[in-house]
Amino acid sequence: MTARDRILRRLRSAGVEALPPPVLPAAFRVGGALPGEAPVDALRRNLEGAQAVVVDARAGDWRAELARICAARGVRSLLLPPGFALAPWPEGPALRRFDRPIEEFKTSLFEDTDAGLTVAGCAIADTGTLVHADPAGQPRTLSLVPPIHFCLLDPRRLHGSLADAIAAEGWAAPMPSNLVFVSGPSKTADIQQTLAYGAHGPKELYVLLAEAPAGPGE
């Protein structure tokens, strides 16, 4: 008999009676979040509360905004998702694409990539959360390793809560190998409860709101 069988047998021998399924509070039912606040305002408020910078580029050109921030922050190299077209690109840092397996360029990813750009699949307003649910299109480390993270978000892809997102996005059929929720730049308070940013992941997070940002193309 294996450890598995012995553990399961012990648990079963306790003879625990089944309970009715839990009833979730209204705020965790679909559509139950955020009474009274426009979702995009809540998203912005929450992200800014977590030290992210939100740039609303819906009226203008997000590429120009991106180039402006890159210049201001001294970004020399920007890593793009596989197959992502950033054109026209006014002028700015050198563009590279995450188009090979990580093993083939780990050193340059870790050592000389100043910023990464991702496109959020959707976002969650009531916690200020960017969702990356497509690890093939948006490699995991793109939002993790470079010290600055730019994230493009189409605000029409906004859900009120995580519960809404789970219900609407149909992730479970089948689950992506990795689903990452990002709610700010990396941080820690492990030294004397003093908040410090850029613990292991990006120190800065910029969220660019743009409708239909150029998708994967070329």
Binding site: T127, T129, M175, P176, S177, N178, L179, F181, P185
Partner: peptide, 14 residues
């Protein structure tokens, strides 16, 4: 209300 990262893993690299 939420941590910076919430990481759901449902498999190795595909």
């Amino acid at each position: 209300a939420v941590t910076t990262y919430f990481n759901w893993i449902s498999g190795p690299r595909r």
